[in-house]
Every structure is written in structure tokens, then in C-alpha cells.
Design a binder for these strands. Structure first.
Length: 125
RNA sequence: AUAUAGAGUUAGAAAAUCGUUCUUCGGGAUAGGUGGGGGGAGGAAAGUCCGGACACCUCCCGCCUUUUCGGCGGGAAAGUGAUAGUGGCUAACGGCCACCGGGAGCAGAGAUUUUGAAAGUCUCUCGAGAAUUUCAAAAUUUUCAAGCCUAGGGAAAGUGCAACAGAAACAUACAGCCGACCCCUCACCACUUUUGAAAAAAAUUAAGUAGAUAGAGUAAAAAAUUUUAUAAAUUUUAUAAAAAAAGAAAUAGAAUUUAGAAAAUUUUUUUCAAAAGUGGUGAGGGGGGCAAUGGUGAAAUCGUGAGGUAAGAGCUCACGCGCGCCUAUGGAGACAUAGCGCGGGGCAAACCCUAUCUGGUGAAAGAGCAAAUUUGGUAGCUCGUUUGAGCUUAGCAGUAAUGCCAAGCCUAGAUAGAUGGCCUUCAAAAACAGAAUCCGGCUUAUUAUCUGCUUGCUUUG
RNA sequence: GUGAGCGUAGUGUAAUGGUUAGCACAAGAACCUGUGGAGUUCUUAGCGGGGGUUCGAAUCCCCUCGCUCACC
């Protein structure tokens, strides 16, 4: 789990992001985000009941996404609220495949979600 | 020892690292944060098919306080819905336990049939046949241990339903059978009565006659007289009785005597004809009796057999089945057995009736704190919330479900919702699957391991 | 968490407990036409699954699977 300050907990926040946020979707996964006025970024994960029927699988995907986010926390820009949305087909992916998809979303530099610290440091990501 | 329907147990372990939640401890003035220790999904957490706990609300009753408000205790009429063998268990249940009834039916056992083998017996054509017994196999069938299935009140309150087929689906009609009973018609037979005809016999009358013939045969009858009696007149008369006269005579009557008809009438018998009546037989019709027969169907007035009857029928009997406001015995009871009686279709998972249970709403119940913004209240936060119909072990009661009691233990509590990522070893780490107020059941999904009541087979004693 | 409804050929849909589950479109074959379309004729293919009640179940009852909707 993320710490509480990095989590989105209120229904209103979700609604706000859903209405005003910008989005990017691929087949298995999508992301919506909106700038907030805080120092840190907050994250939420949505795995709808209709996409995955079984509760065990649903929890598993949440756990995996949480872990991935945790690993990439330092790379992500501050002051953004992100909501990850699972889409049909995500249940058949392995851990590595899901990791690739998440990286693909985050790397999409159109929205400058990932900081350019790597470039500054000279590390190739 | 092995296999096993069914039933039950367990649900990974150890190690490293990154990370999460609850709790506890440390330093710290507090908060935030940080460090150490400990705990952290299931047998189904699932489906939501039932039942309860808990909370509030509605209505009614009682008590307390009271102008009211309110507090405590008890209860749920109708309706709706549910349940349905008996007894027990339970907080409660549609659950569980034990039993009862019903069903299907494996093994086993019995019976029948067939086939084969063996044994002795009998027969004769002397190498075949016959039946019997024993053994084995197969088929059919009966009874069926253990185990399995069973929503199992009421069809002797009422309504309703049963396609097609069938005469007919619960009401007795139709076809049909019968000809016992009643009525009518026809035919035949028998009997009785009446009438008529014919024949025969007998009797009566005719008639001891007619008529004919042939005999026999002699003194009777009558008259007169006398006597007696009676009656009337008084001499006599009448009647009756007796006696005598009367003989070869009197032409001695063919008077007498013997034999002897017919017609007619009546009766009986027989035959024939007609009418009426009675009875029988046969045929037909109507009334009547019957529900056996009708082959269809899932189901046909209980089944089979015998008696019985005009024909038939539980009409009677035997065996078997069913039912009961009945009796006895056994049982706590369902019920069982025996007797007695009845007389006998199905469906209530069709409506319905009976009995029992059921007031309503669900954690989005409910209680509290409370920002911007003073009251109230909203956002939000906290509680409810995991010490409970709890778990483990032992003892006692009970066939069991379960209950009582003792000791020990505390064993998830999240709230965008906690167990994951990477990696090593244990052979393989898996299947179904994730708590959301809690608990008891049911149902469904599913893997591996273990136990082994029962049963089968084998071995040993 | 609570409540309601639905499931029938490839698709859409009908049905009183009782005929061989009907209809339309689609699919296939044949005919027709110079060819195609249209048309005509024929064929294929079905009650979500399991169990029960009943003589008989798509229909009644129970369990289950799947789908949809409503409340918040």
C-alpha cells in the first residue's frame, strides 16, 4: 500500500478527475490525471466489477498496479492526481506484460508525467 | 494387508529483501514521523436460498412519572407469506439427530426353466431311453441385510382438471347379456268346460209290451154262497179276510207259463270339429334385472381362483391388497400385530381446507462529536465493530443431535478497502477461491494429503 | 447490501400442463434467368443445466448457471 497521503480517498476527487481530467488509454489499461495544488502526487486505481468478475483477480491486479506505482513514485511529477483504470483483457496479462503497459503509458511524454531527471543525470531510461 | 461408495481431518513449511494494516513497546513536551516485537481471509469467506442476534419504527395493553413530553415491561388482530410423518435438539430454522411409513434395488438367499457333468435305479430292440438325486453355469422371477432416495397433513367439506384413444374418466348412459318377475302378440302341446257330429257299451222306459214262432200246461181267476170283522142304514148294502164250491171238464179262454224285441230316453267311453279357460314350450316386443363382457388408455369400480345365479355382481368363500372418529396388545409417539367392520379410483409442487409460525424496516439500522459559520444541521470524523449462541482440552448425562460443568486461550477488523513483487529449498506449491455488523444452517465450486465406520476379495488364527 | 425480471433454431419472437414446439428473417440445395437480384419448392437447426411432482413438463416446484434492470 501507498501511504495515506499519496492516496485518493474521496469520491469527490474521483468525480472531479473524471469530469475535468485528461486521459490516455490503450487496450488493457488507461490513465486519467489532473493537476492539484499540493506538493505531492496522489493515485487511485479503478478495477470495475464488469471488467473482472472474480474478486481474487481484481485484488491481484490492484496489488500489482500499486507495486508498480510505488516503484515509479520518484519518477513521476509532483502535484498530479492520477487514476488508473483497468479495461477488459487485463486479467490475462502477466506481471511483466503489465509492467510494460504501465511504462508505455507513463513514458508517453506528451503530458510530461515523467520528470526529466534522467536526462539531467545522463541516465538512459 | 489391499481396494473403497459414503463420512470426516488438514489447507503448506523454512529463509532473504522491498512494501501494507492493526496492536504493543522505546526514545520524544505533543502531533507528524521513525525504530523494535507480535497478530493479519475460507472450507466454502461465494450464492443470498432460509433462520436468528442486534438496532430503530408502527399499533395495542399495563405500570411509573406527568398538563404534556417521556421511561419500564408485555404483546402482535386482520392480511400476506411460509411450513407440513413422529419424538427430540436448538436462540431460531425449510436445519440437525433418532425413529416410523413409502420407493428403487446391489450382494446374498429361495423358486422356476434351460444346458452340461457325475451317481446309482428302471426299461428294453443292448446302446440307447426314462425319470430321480447331487454339482456347476446361464436366464427369468420372488424376497431383499447394510447402505441409498423420499416437500410424507386433508380427496369420508366444496370447486376444478384428465389431451388422444375409448361405450364410459366418476355420472351412470350406450352396445351387449338374461328371459327369474310383470304386460302384450304369435305358434305348438296338454288339460278342463260347453256345444255339435259319429261310434261303442250300459241302464231305464217301451215291456215282460208289439209281432213272430216254438213249446209247456191244468184249474187258477172271476161270479155266486157261507162265516167273521168294520162302516152305514137296521131286513140289507159296501169293503176286507177266510172257507167251500171245480172237474178231463167249460170248444176248458193260448187267459196262464217259458223264451222274447224295436223305436225312444239317459249315462259312460272313444274320435272329430268349434269356442272359452288354465298350464307348458318356443319366438318376438315393452317394462325389468345386470355391470361380468367392450382392449382403449397413464389410469376402468380391488386382484386371482372357486361357488353361486335367469344372467350376473365382494353376492358368498379362500388367499392377497386397501381403508377406519372401532376394539385389544406393544410403543413416548408416528406406527406395528391381531381381531372386528367397511366396500374400495387419481391430481392439493390446481384452487382450497386444517394446524403451527409470521408486526415492519435493515449497518444505507442506529448513537455521538462537529469545520467553514453563533444555534440547529451539512461535509467530515468516531462509535456500533469483533469477548462471541467464541475456540481448545478433559469429565459427566444422552443411542445421537446436543446439553451441563471445569481448566486454559484471545485468534483479522480494513473503509477507494490491507497478504503482493523478485528469489531459494522441501518431488510439486498447486484447485475452487478474498472478510466488510455478527452467528447457525442449506446449496454450489474445487485440489492434494490423511483417517478408515461399512462392504468386497485374499491370507492367518 | 436489498429488490425485480429474463433465458426457446444463427437472429428476433409466439405458446392454455396434452399433435411431431409455431412464425419471420438468415443459411444450404434445386428450379427460374443470358447473368445476378427478386420469386417458387424443399431442407437444416431449438426450450440455459440438473432434480422432482404428474400418465404426460418449454409451462408447475426446488437447486443451480448466466444476463439485465432498479434503489444507494
Amino acid at each position: 500500500m501507498l501511504k495515506k497521503q499519496y492516496r485518493l480517498t474521496k469520491t469527490k476527487d474521483f468525480e472531479k478527475i473524471w469530469q475535468k481530467g485528461r486521459s490516455f488509454f490503450i487496450k488493457e489499461i488507461g490513465i486519467k490525471f489532473l493537476a492539484n495544488n499540493l506538493d505531492c502526487s496522489r493515485f487511485g486505481i479503478i478495477v470495475p466489477n464488469k471488467v473482472i468478475r472474480k474478486a481474487v483477480l481484481r485484488n491481484k491486479i490492484k496489488r500489482r498496479l500499486r507495486n508498480m506505482i510505488k516503484k515509479r513514485m520518484p519518477l513521476i511529477k509532483e502535484g498530479v492526481d492520477c487514476v488508473f483504470l483497468a479495461r477488459p483483457g487485463i486479467g490475462e496479462l502477466t506481471f511483466q506484460e503489465l509492467e510494460e503497459r504501465v511504462d508505455f503509458i507513463l513514458k508517453n511524454s506528451r503530458f510530461n508525467l515523467i520528470l526529466n531527471i534522467f536526462k539531467k543525470l545522463g541516465i538512459r531510461y
